[in-house]
Nucleic acid binder design. Structure first.
Lengths: 122, 122
DNA sequence: CGGGATCCAGGATGATACTG
DNA sequence: CAGTATCATCCTGGATCCCG
């Protein structure tokens, strides 16, 4: 990371980072390793509401990460799939995910230590 | 990414991801490539308020990413620096940052296209 | 200098109902 | 099925004041 520039408010990377570096975007992108339909994604991502999912999908679509395709036939069907751009994000996100998994235990240990150091006794 | 597990609400990686995959954490970590003091960080990160900076630093500290050291002497001084764990995050974050810089233009083009496709004319 | 405590407004979120 | 619309709510983040 170039520390001389990242922090500037006018650096476009900050704006972009804002768009992609959030939990749901990452998870949606992960789940879309293969094309999926709306409710399918929703089912896979336990805890997301359709409202938030819709917003996330729209944002990803606007940013050119995913494609929305209306399936012919009834009842309605919509399929989302990664664009090449979206797929190219799997690398960096994968790194981050792997790091998280590798260091999960260490982090939780730190948290416990911090909390016991912090919390007031009865 | 392992799609069979990422999305589960009970997967700890989701909790961790939540902690680290936010804008300010990434930027603070970036700026802390060398030890810095509170107001120094604040000055470097244009747009952050001391409240949010404090919260971000606390969270990072709790997660074992940074160390807080009170400097002896008057007036007060506090120095923050990366722990080995925090430093190990620079790799993944760097990847993401590099990706962002490389694809910034493409993304902004997508956004413009999407917006002109979407917005209603006068 | 480095915060903690408070107050307050606005945006994000959840739940629910309705539609093509 | 795949959303949109609405409303109540919650919580974050900004602004301020104060303290060691």
């Amino acid at each position: 990371m170039n520390n001389d520039v990242v922090h500037r408010v006018d650096c476009p990377s900050r704006v972009i980072l804002d768009q992609i570096a959030d939990k749901w975007s990452m998870l949606v992108l992960a789940v879309l390793s293969e094309p999926r339909r709306f409710n399918e994604i929703k089912r896979l991502l336990e805890g997301i509401t359709q409202r938030v999912l819709t917003q996330t999908l729209r944002r990803l679509e606007r940013n050119g990460m995913i494609t929305r395709r209306v399936l012919p036939g009834r009842p309605l069907g919509v399929e989302y799939s990664l664009t090449p751009l979206g797929r190219s994000l799997q690398g960096p996100f994968g790194e981050l995910y792997d790091w998280t998994v590798s260091n999960m235990d260490a982090i939780q240990a730190f948290q416990r230590a911090y909390d016991s150091r912090t919390e007031q006794s009865t």
